[in-house]
Write a protein that binds this DNA or RNA. Structure first.
Lengths: 219, 219
DNA sequence: GTTGTCGGTGTACAGATGTTCACTGAAAGG
DNA sequence: CCTTTCAGTGAACATCTGTACACCGACAAC
């Protein structure tokens, strides 16, 4: 469609470009309304291809959704990597009860959500409203994240004597709060309201952390 | 359609019955797929009326959704009432750190979610995937619940010296966990997995409660 | 008993939907 | 150079979509 100067572009590259265009168009089209309400023809029109050409890349909206799940969770894993790097740098016993880690993690969350509104919004929506297979894929990925976070938590001071079960319980709670916060950030555009959301979750995590530092696993 | 014997049934009653049938049909049809993916004709067919008759009751799927929001939050308020009654009965200083209240509240949650799967599922889904006006209505209702819970929390031992802001922060965290738990319960049918979910949230709330009991509001 | 109200019906239409099929034309491969 | 591959085309289809309109017939009101 739009050729910008002299780009040879192999056939494979061109195919990949259209595929990307489909993924992007889909993310844009379902910013409000969910995959299940999205038609193949809307996507095709947005991309600028004929409806039938869609089948050269995906054989249904559902499998398109599965591809978007993978892509979106790449963004979420980026966030996790940032948080982990952040936490490791602050593994300083002199800091008071992990306030730095909390603040750093929240900042990272806000930052990543802003940079990939589309991906985080996609996960939040399709997690509960998408086609069954998409919902299941998302749940599986989230459980993966929880397990991953649990092993990270095991390495931190204070939780080193915890049972594996308790570690996972805590990890799951963090992920729940993380998801809820992302949803809230996505549902507002007013900066002062976002400030409010961030301040709230900051306090929530601090309250929780007090409990965590006192917790001793039973048995 | 189905006349069971001698029921005079006034015109108003009949209209109300059809309205109910529409609401029920809608809840059933969108157990997986969201309002935005639901067509007026599907609803009409499920109810057993002709498509145009739909307009005698609602002027769009969206306004139908708003009615369902009100109805669903009636169920949620029922839950809150149960929890509050429960908590008041257990306002006994001899119980250890509110374990009884936590357990009772979770039991009430599970019970209500089972009894009104449709309503809780509707809220969980349309909260993020419904039409804009429906999403906004749900968010408003949830904020109402948070405020309500915050005033309840103020009356409890341990939080009586807290600032209004901190009370709302805690209330918001409880509601977040509540919503997340309801979502998890709804997404499973296996009893042993539900047991697992309940055990997890029980521990999570206990961890959190430790922090709450130590928390002192600043300024 | 006449009249008006109003749920519900049936027909109709213009447009959108998923999917099929035979096609084109340029890049890839021999 | 000639052949194959294959992303994208375009027409055609049966079906579903929201909504407009004229209509019916039972209940309600007078």
């Amino acid at each position: 469609m739009i050729e910008t100067g002299a780009e040879p572009e192999s056939r494979a590259e061109r195919k990949l470009r259209t595929r990307r265009a489909i993924l992007d168009a889909t993310l844009e089209l379902c910013t409000d309304s969910s995959l299940t309400a999205l038609s193949l023809r809307q996507v095709a029109k947005q991309v600028g291809i004929v409806p039938t050409a869609f089948y050269r890349h995906f054989d249904s909206i559902e499998s398109l959704g599965l591809a978007l799940v993978e892509e979106s969770f790449d963004s979420l894993r980026d966030l996790f990597r940032d948080v982990r790097r952040n936490a490791r740098a602050d593994q300083d016993p002199s800091t008071s009860s992990g306030h730095r880690i909390v603040d750093g993690s929240i900042d990272a969350l806000v930052d990543h959500v802003h940079r990939r509104r589309d991906h985080f919004g996609f996960i939040a929506r399709e997690r509960v409203a998408g086609p069954r297979s998409v919902r299941e894929a998302i749940r599986r990925e989230i459980e993966l994240c929880e397990r991953e976070l649990a092993t990270d938590l095991a390495l931190m001071t204070g939780t080193d004597t915890w049972t594996a079960k308790d570690l996972h319980v805590l990890s799951s709670l963090f992920v729940t709060v993380l998801v809820a916060t992302a949803e809230q950030i996505l549902s507002t555009t007013r900066p002062e309201q976002e400030e409010q959301i961030v301040a709230t979750v900051r306090t929530q995590l601090r309250m929780l952390l007090i409990g965590v530092y006192q917790w001793r696993s039973e048995s």
